[in-house]
Nucleic acid binder design. Sequence first.
DNA 1: GGCCAGTTTTGTATCCATCAACATCACCCC
DNA 2: GGGGTGATGTTGATGGATACAAAACTGGCC
Lengths: 337, 337
Amino acid sequence: MTANNVNKNITVFDVARQAGVSKSTVSLVLTESDKVSEKSKEKVLKAIDELGYVYNRDAAALRSRRSNLVGVVINDLTNPYSAQLAVGLERHIRSLGYMSVLVNSGEDLTTQKQLVQQLKEYRLAALVICPTPGTDAQWLNQQIDAGIPVIQIMREVVGARAPLVIPDNVKGTSLVTQHLLDQGYRHLAFIGGNESISDFHERLAGFDRTLLKAQLTNLQITRIQAPTNRHGGRQAIQQALQSDPNLQAIVCFNDVIAYGAIEQLHALGRIPGKDIAVAGFDDLEDSCRMSPALTTVHIDADKIGQAVCRLLGNKKEAVASEGRILVDVEFIPRSSG
Amino acid sequence: MTANNVNKNITVFDVARQAGVSKSTVSLVLTESDKVSEKSKEKVLKAIDELGYVYNRDAAALRSRRSNLVGVVINDLTNPYSAQLAVGLERHIRSLGYMSVLVNSGEDLTTQKQLVQQLKEYRLAALVICPTPGTDAQWLNQQIDAGIPVIQIMREVVGARAPLVIPDNVKGTSLVTQHLLDQGYRHLAFIGGNESISDFHERLAGFDRTLLKAQLTNLQITRIQAPTNRHGGRQAIQQALQSDPNLQAIVCFNDVIAYGAIEQLHALGRIPGKDIAVAGFDDLEDSCRMSPALTTVHIDADKIGQAVCRLLGNKKEAVASEGRILVDVEFIPRSSG
DNA sequence: GGCCAGTTTTGTATCCATCAACATCACCCC
DNA sequence: GGGGTGATGTTGATGGATACAAAACTGGCC
């Protein structure tokens, strides 16, 4: 009653008293409203600093019926590209004043469902999801109907009413394939990936269409699916060589597959980039530094982050105006192919 | 006033009415208290299901003055071991009923500070941090004093009053070094890492002490620090070979450094595991599958997760009883050394 | 002084689950 | 029968910020 209560938290009320304004004004400053004069704002900020006040997000979220958390569901954080993407997304989301809650579905449908169910309890500002194979459009639409703004990235769930941010996969593999054809290679393979994800179809389509358009008669083409990790790459190239011993060039579903392929070629005593051309997709940080440096397609994780932020910022408008953002990619020829 | 208000959220009150109990009882069920009869519990769960009630964490956190969020600050998510660790941690933390908020400091001190400041606004249940080099013990202690239970992992900030979970680094490199000595190698190098982090000192200590204990007179030892990525490994081995052209065996600070070293050796036409032995530390997923398979030290990310959870569970007791949990490591000899 | 339109500020109700303290109940013991 | 004991259940106040509407300023002008 008399002594200053040590155990009590400092609230907007204390700040208001210290600054000589009402708590509403403090709240306006905290939410960066422009309806507050420079003078009041300064007084409030000074008081906040003096008291060491810490904003209470729980109380804010309770009243405003929405937190500033953005759920980010990544399919597989142990995949280097996903990690790179997650880091970029997190930074961008934070720069918008949101906090990202990064979770990993591990490509497991049940885990993904549980995660989203749990995330809902936080009244997310938005949900960014790189959907696991087999994700149900109806389920995703349910989440949207429940009031969560959903943004799909990297992979498309057909029929979902959520805006989408993906790299231009078709363009990427088209450029790679054309490059290899231009060098005179006619025995080509596409290895890695899995038909249950949309980007596989797109990347393969870029490959196939380019071959078709070239109208060459002496082509020999091999296609091998494989798990998206190094080991998958190793196995796939083994299979591809079995199916076509005169293989000249390999388009890999992504860089990790390419890493595996290159390792396996080394082990077989064949020199990648010389005996056989290898190209990837993603342009991981290591790809430019390995030997041989990997020919690949650069996806700018930063641009993906920016696109997601554009959608986050737009809120309403976004869904209607930009249902699908295609992020440009860049072909990077290096010594491996 | 009369019609059912469509826009209104379903709350514990609605559930209580549907189940024919009070809202406190519903709350008890939600917090999994054992002070509620099986019969009431069933009624409540049925009502929750029927109404499609979603728990509101914000309200809960506001009243209970603590959220169920656990902040996880990782130093560098693009490092594969960190990613592996983060995934393991996240899974464990979730299994305890908490939600992990994964953020990436990118080894940047200012970012780390900002992140923690932001995380504080959520009244974290705990903060798990893999501290960036240069982290100030006093700053960390301030956070603890502010009421956040802090757990350090992988790296130690000397003077911080936070419990610590680290792998047995000394044992790891000791075993590696002894193994190399046993094979008769006398020209050894330790490459990679940086003296501003505690694990570097520990791993180097394991190396040095083992050499000392061996009491050999014909040793030639090289030590090269380098950034912890593949490129660092490539550069470091280049330097090491310059300093000792007859190098026989290399102890790498971690697997990523070893990957770089192996690549560079390949490029120089020297066969790792045959011309020169290479060993790593971490045992990344790829390490057992590459060629040559990498001799390394296995750190079980799961065990780290378990140890962290033990600390999370204990609350009070933990800090006193288990200030420092040393997670056992396992030496894995393979063909690279 | 009074009035206007626009900008700032303030008072009050509200968001929803939890806590503390208090009822209730069945059961048993002396 | 009085009252103790332990398990369940309930009431009412509470946590800290924001939404909303109403009030209090602005400065200019009749």
